[in-house]
Amino acid sequence: MDKSSKIFVAGHRGLVGSAIVRRLEEEGFTNLLLRTSQELDLRDQEKTLSFFTAERPDYVFLAAARVGGIVANNTKPADFIYDNLMIQSNTIHSSFLTGVKKLLFLGSTCIYPRMAPQPIREDALLTGPLEPTNEAYAIAKIAGIKMCQAYNRQHGTRYISAMPTNLYGPNDNFDLTTSHVLPALIRKFHEAKVSASPTVSIWGSGTPFREFVHVDDVADASLYLMERYEGWDPVNVGSGEELTIGDLARLIKETVGFDGELVFDSSKPDGTPRKLSDVNRIHGLGWRHRIPLNEGLKNVYQWYLANRA
Score class of each variant (00 low, 15 high):
residue 1 M to G: 11
residue 6 K to D: 05
residue 10 A to G: 13
residue 11 G to P: 09
residue 13 R to Y: 12
residue 21 V to D: 01
residue 21 V to M: 05
residue 22 R to A: 11
residue 23 R to E: 12
residue 24 L to E: 00
residue 24 L to W: 02
residue 28 G to H: 06
residue 31 N to T: 10
residue 31 N to S: 13
residue 33 L to G: 07
residue 45 Q to P: 12
residue 51 F to H: 01
residue 52 F to Y: 14
residue 66 R to L: 13
residue 71 V to N: 15
residue 72 A to Y: 10
residue 73 N to F: 03
residue 73 N to Q: 15
residue 77 P to D: 08
residue 78 A to W: 10
residue 81 I to L: 13
residue 82 Y to R: 15
residue 84 N to Y: 04
residue 86 M to I: 06
residue 88 Q to K: 14
residue 89 S to W: 07
residue 90 N to L: 07
residue 91 T to R: 00
residue 97 L to Q: 15
residue 100 V to M: 00
residue 104 L to T: 00
residue 105 F to A: 04
residue 115 M to H: 12
residue 117 P to F: 01
residue 118 Q to K: 11
residue 120 I to M: 13
residue 121 R to Y: 05
residue 124 A to R: 11
residue 132 P to I: 00
residue 137 Y to H: 03
residue 140 A to S: 14
residue 140 A to P: 11
residue 143 A to E: 08
residue 147 M to N: 11
residue 148 C to D: 05
residue 150 A to S: 15
residue 152 N to V: 03
residue 153 R to N: 10
residue 156 G to I: 00
residue 156 G to T: 08
residue 160 I to W: 02
residue 160 I to Y: 04
residue 162 A to F: 03
residue 165 T to Y: 03
residue 168 Y to S: 05
residue 169 G to F: 04
residue 169 G to M: 02
residue 170 P to L: 02
residue 171 N to P: 09
residue 177 T to V: 14
residue 182 L to Q: 04
residue 184 A to Y: 02
residue 190 H to R: 09
residue 192 A to C: 11
residue 194 V to S: 13
residue 195 S to G: 14
residue 200 V to C: 07
residue 201 S to D: 13
residue 203 W to A: 12
residue 204 G to L: 07
residue 210 R to W: 10
residue 212 F to I: 06
residue 214 H to I: 04
residue 216 D to Y: 05
residue 217 D to T: 11
residue 217 D to I: 04
residue 217 D to H: 03
residue 217 D to G: 11
residue 219 A to T: 06
residue 223 L to D: 03
residue 228 R to C: 08
residue 229 Y to G: 01
residue 243 L to F: 13
residue 244 T to L: 04
residue 250 R to M: 09
residue 251 L to F: 07
residue 256 V to W: 01
residue 257 G to I: 07
residue 260 G to F: 03
residue 261 E to R: 15
residue 269 P to N: 04
residue 271 G to L: 00
residue 272 T to S: 10
residue 273 P to N: 08
residue 273 P to S: 07
residue 273 P to M: 09
residue 275 K to H: 08
residue 286 G to I: 03
residue 287 W to M: 08
residue 291 I to R: 00
residue 294 N to Y: 12
residue 295 E to Y: 10
residue 297 L to V: 00
residue 301 Y to P: 00
residue 305 L to T: 05
